[in-house]
Design a binder for these strands. Structure first.
Lengths: 120, 120
DNA sequence: CAGGATCCTATACGATACTG
DNA sequence: CAGTATCGTATAGGATCCTG
């Protein structure tokens, strides 16, 4: 005998799992900035991303890029230059994050206003 | 004279800072689930949230609620019952996260399909 | 240039017990 | 009920140096 409240809760549990799945992939200090950098310039090389993002180390960039690639958000292309360069770009799946990134950008600006009282 | 590319990059740096501001507040394992729980039920007591979220400890819940309150996303109300109960609800500012949470929910479902739902 | 290897610190998080 | 206190582990992240 299922009551309405049960399904209500069940449905919410699914939503929470979904939202946690997203955060598992996007959480942390660098993932979103990296995606944002690549997305903004369409294609971006390792050293360019390193310069785009203030404070990131090559170790972290390397590590994060690998995870993003495993999650099929970015695609890695080795260019046979001398020395070699590597280009990153978003996959179709990665591009679906644009809405979220735009929302997070707007919300971040708004949040700063609320907390600090004024934008910088 | 300023070239377009300069403003281009400058503008992007601002966007990245905004997006990082958001992630500073929302990153981690529990913040979004907590907000989601409170938002879903409108008002929610400490022990209810504890039950809503699978795996969270009272220590973490307490800590995270405090941070969310500092960031003015939730409002804490002590009810003079016996023993006392405490109700949490989203502030107006906290409510502005609904769009992001909805997007993250949809994206999480989509992402799971892409990652585990693909043929090997 | 693009990263890997190594070492280290800080913080996130978890388990359990206790209190007003 | 709604937390705190204490302790312990795991992981995130940083600094530096090395290599094809």
């Amino acid at each position: 005998m299922e009551c309405k409240k049960t399904n209500f809760g069940q449905e919410h549990k699914k939503e929470m799992r979904a939202v946690q799945d997203s955060m598992d992939v996007l959480s942390g200090k660098w993932k979103i900035p990296i995606i944002s950098s690549i997305c903004y310039y369409n294609k971006r090389r390792f050293s360019d991303i390193l310069n785009d993002i203030d404070g990131i180390s090559n170790r972290m960039l390397s590590k994060e890029l690998k995870e993003l690639e495993i999650n099929q958000l970015i695609k890695r292309t080795v260019l046979e230059t001398q020395p070699i360069t590597v280009e990153y770009q978003l996959t179709d799946h990665g591009l679906t994050l644009r809405t979220i990134i735009n929302n997070l950008t707007e919300w971040g600006i708004d949040h700063r206003k609320v907390i600090v009282g004024k934008p910088l």
